[in-house]
């Protein structure tokens, strides 16, 4: 029961969606497929809340037990509740509640969460520059190919570099776009896409047939 029911559920839900591909939308199986898809968006939505419950539990435990850095966990909890509570309260109580323009939720997103997320990723520019200086070495023929391509692309993609490349006869910018990006790079990306897609399809088949059961966890 603990294992066979989930396997049966995965098999039926997967099979319906596969078979429905070969039928018209207004057929019985087409309607069932659409219902299953709606169910999928609903059930899956709850998985996002699992992460929130988890972060609240971990932070709360750290505060309660006065673990190292517990003060910061209070801020995390404050952040969760400051964003979540006004969003779930009825809009009829106050125009500040809910998720639309001018609400607390919207303000916290625009003036706190969004700029902080942007900044977090902006710091990667510093790391990538430092990595280029320290680790990007022409140690072998392969590394040299990588290095030359990277520098050529970096030059091509900036107006100043493009002007420099145009000084060399042979329309290098257009050559880079056609043969490097649209040729060699595209071929490799295509190889990766084909391989990854075949892998995803075979993994899907394994899940539907109940061979792959890792998602069930232990017990």
């Amino acid at each position: 029961m603990r294992t066979s029911l989930p396997i049966a559920v995965a098999f039926i839900s997967g099979l319906v969606l596969v078979v429905a591909f070969f039928f018209r939308d207004d057929s019985l199986i087409g309607s069932l497929r659409q219902e299953f898809i709606v169910w999928l968006t609903i059930i899956g939505g709850f998985t996002l809340l699992l992460g929130v419950v988890s972060i609240v539990r971990v932070s709360w435990t750290a505060v309660k037990r006065r673990k190292e850095g517990w003060f910061y966990k209070i801020l995390t909890l404050l952040g969760v509740f400051a964003m979540a509570i006004p969003a779930v309260l009825p809009v009829s109580w106050s125009p500040l509640f809910g998720r639309s323009d001018g609400t607390i939720y919207d303000w916290l997103f625009n003036y706190m969460q969004s700029p902080m997320m942007s900044t977090m990723f902006a710091t990667l520019a510093f790391y990538i520059a430092s990595a280029a200086h320290r680790a990007f070495r022409a140690r072998s023929a392969e590394a040299t190919i990588l290095l030359i391509t990277a520098c050529a692309i970096m030059l091509w993609r900036i107006p100043m570099g493009e002007a420099m490349l145009n000084m060399i006869p042979g329309d290098l910018p257009s050559w880079l776009n056609t043969y490097v990006m649209g040729g060699a790079n595209m071929a490799v990306q295509r190889g990766i896409i084909i391989g990854a897609a075949l892998g995803a399809a075979s993994m899907s088949l394994r899940i539907i047939l109940g061979i792959e059961r890792m998602y069930m966890g232990k017990g």
Partner: peptide, 14 residues
């Protein structure tokens, strides 16, 4: 830490 909290809270509202 404020960022982590707000990000989790955003999802609850959504």
């Amino acid at each position: 830490h404020i960022f982590a909290g707000l990000t989790a809270g955003y999802q609850v509202g959504l």
